[in-house]
Amino acid sequence: MSNTFLIILFVLIGGGLFLSFLRLILGRKATDRAVALDTTTLITTGFLVLVAFLQGRSMLLDVALVYSVLSFLGVLAIARYLDGGLR
């Protein structure tokens, strides 16, 4: 993988992460923030796999897998809370 290509990848992924994180901070309503959180965690999963590839450490793949599982559970918990808790 050449250096130029790496820079392009980092700019694109970092830009997406930055914009969705900005929405997470600015978001006007609670559900907007929850959607932004969902997007942020998914882009972070991709970012983790990219870092794993650059460092050649397959251990970080397990981190990415567990991260995506936990982020899914977290978003579900937030959604249930916004929906009025467990009924």
């Binding site: 392009i8 992924i13 830009g15 997406g16 992460l17 997007t39 882009i43 991709g46």
Partner: peptide, 15 residues
């Protein structure tokens, strides 16, 4: 590259 572009588009879309 396409994947990174689509991920960027999703961040921009959410924004």
């Amino acid at each position: 590259g396409l994947g990174a572009l689509v991920l960027f588009a999703s961040g921009l879309g959410v924004f």
